[in-house]
């Protein structure tokens, strides 16, 4: 019997958009994952605390739809330096105000230490599978 896979899910601190968050939670549960959903408006330290509670989580998934992803995630280097959030951090959504700067916004998030930036939720399960395969190797 396959072991239960677990992920942490939430929406960035300044963002109350719940629809995509709920959809992704349903999608992951349907795909067999256990999902700890921290919901909307979740500051990064709250993700860190949840990971301490659920050390078996294989990734931290953060949605951001209001264009403020970079501001909401700016504590990531500090937390990582303190040994927190040592799992792949995957960010998805509308990452910047306006379309033109999407690539730029993605680069800035990666510079901050975000591990993966997704533009479409259907990429999520394949990415989690590939990350797990790497860990297994």
């Amino acid at each position: 019997m396959a072991e239960q896979r677990l992920v942490l899910l939430g929406v960035a601190a300044s963002d109350a958009h719940a629809v995509a968050n709920r959809l992704i939670a349903m999608h992951l549960r349907q795909a067999g994952f256990e999902v700890v959903n921290l919901g909307t408006c979740t500051p990064l330290p709250e993700f860190a605390a949840a990971l301490r509670l659920h050390p078996g989580a294989e990734a931290v998934l953060i949605g951001s739809l209001n264009g403020h992803a970079h501001a909401d995630l700016r504590e990531l280097p500090d937390l990582r330096a303190k040994g927190e959030l040592r799992r792949p951090v995957i960010v998805g959504g509308n990452l910047a105000v306006g379309q033109a700067s999407a690539a730029e916004a993605e680069r800035r998030l990666l510079d901050l230490g975000v591990d993966h930036v997704l533009r479409d939720a259907v990429e999520l399960v394949p990415l989690l599978d590939s990350l797990r395969a790497k860990v297994a190797v």
């Binding site: 959809l23 992704i24 349903m26 999608h27 349907q30």
Partner: peptide, 13 residues
């Protein structure tokens, strides 16, 4: 029932 709920709900939305 839930046949590929993400796809169905996304289409509805």
């Amino acid at each position: 029932g839930r046949p590929d709920l993400l796809a169905v709900l996304s289409a509805d939305i």
